[in-house]
Design a binder for these strands. Structure first.
Lengths: 191, 191
DNA sequence: CCTACCGATCGGTAGG
DNA sequence: CCTACCGATCGGTAGG
């Protein structure tokens, strides 16, 4: 075999790349075909619609974040340790899957109602992990008693979700430094 | 006069609304016409292209944020006071101009290269205000000596720029409470 | 602001 | 995965 044909996975990966760069509505099936070296119409042997591709990319994003949270919550240690693990895991997901993360964060609203509702549910569930851990940290005395765990979780997630907007793998701040900076900022804000 | 005709301002305002909701590429000129009660083709007596509308909305956003920063920096008091004014002013801009702010934050990347560069420049200039004030606060002893003013300004702006994603005017957290929460969080993180 | 269009492009299908 | 299409919609124009 000299040149392998594209698989569905290839198509979904390329879709993630283009949706992240140009947006869902800014990407045509012909654009996507060109990215893979084939015609737009040929994509329909891999997927049944353009929306299908968005569903696949966004649900992959949801799975990655959910898996990260599950792992962080299962870790030993204090609530403060688990919050650090949540932050570190989130940064890993974004850094290692930047196109999927960007599409998940910016293009999920282009999903049809049914799928969008599912994603919003997953997002709420993920945010609840942060909220709970912060509340536990307050109860355990790791964090100040006068912080509002709801607002604090929104603020921390805001920082995490914005990373895709400025993070560059070749930049001055690498993954470890970013985790350290953000955890320092957060610890200080909550402590 | 019974029913006034639409002005260019009306058209730009409606464009901001739709671009914020559905994205630039998700909004057609016919959609926009319908929003205003006229045909898509009639919009061309007010603007010369769809891109023109995006330019107008985004540059209005840039002006609002720049004016807010200018006012905050001119205020009396310590660097810490000026940072609080920057945060409070930013929240005002978002809360009072949510569609413009959303379009500015999410759709500026759909601008053609020339205008996009200008917006990126304005954005950098705005971020520099935060960076400088934080650096001054460190120098004045208002903030801890071990915070990195670059990273801290990115983190604070991340929180500010995410407000459009979750803030609801009818929600539990009103403008004043939001300013108080965020300023408390920030002071604690930096102090 | 409407009528009446234009060429280009869109997502998608049938059949191989 | 390509050929050869389809109807719908796109941004935009001429002329009133």
């Amino acid at each position: 075999m000299v040149t392998a044909r594209n698989t569905r996975r290839d198509v979904v990966a390329a879709a993630g790349r283009l949706f992240a760069e140009r947006g869902y509505h800014g990407t045509s099936m012909r654009d996507l075909g060109k990215e893979l070296g084939l015609l737009g119409s040929s994509l329909y042997s891999h997927v049944s619609s353009k929306q299908d591709l968005l569903v696949d990319v966004v649900e992959e994003g949801a799975r990655l974040f959910e898996a990260s949270a599950e792992k962080a919550l299962a870790a030993e240690g204090s609530a403060s340790d688990r919050l650090e693990a949540l932050i570190s895991g989130h940064i890993d997901v974004v850094v290692d899957n930047i196109e999927v993360a960007r599409t998940f964060l910016n293009e999920a609203r282009m999903l049809d109602l049914e799928h969008r509702s599912r994603v919003i549910g997953a997002r709420d569930h993920y945010e609840a992990a942060f909220r709970t851990v912060i509340a536990e940290g307050i109860a355990e005395g790791d964090f100040r008693g006068d912080v509002d765990h709801k607002t604090a979780s929104i603020f921390i997630l805001s920082i995490l979700n914005a990373i895709e907007r400025w993070y560059r793998p070749t930049g001055a701040l690498d993954r470890d430094a970013l985790v350290a900076e953000l955890w320092g900022f957060t610890r200080s804000a909550l402590g």
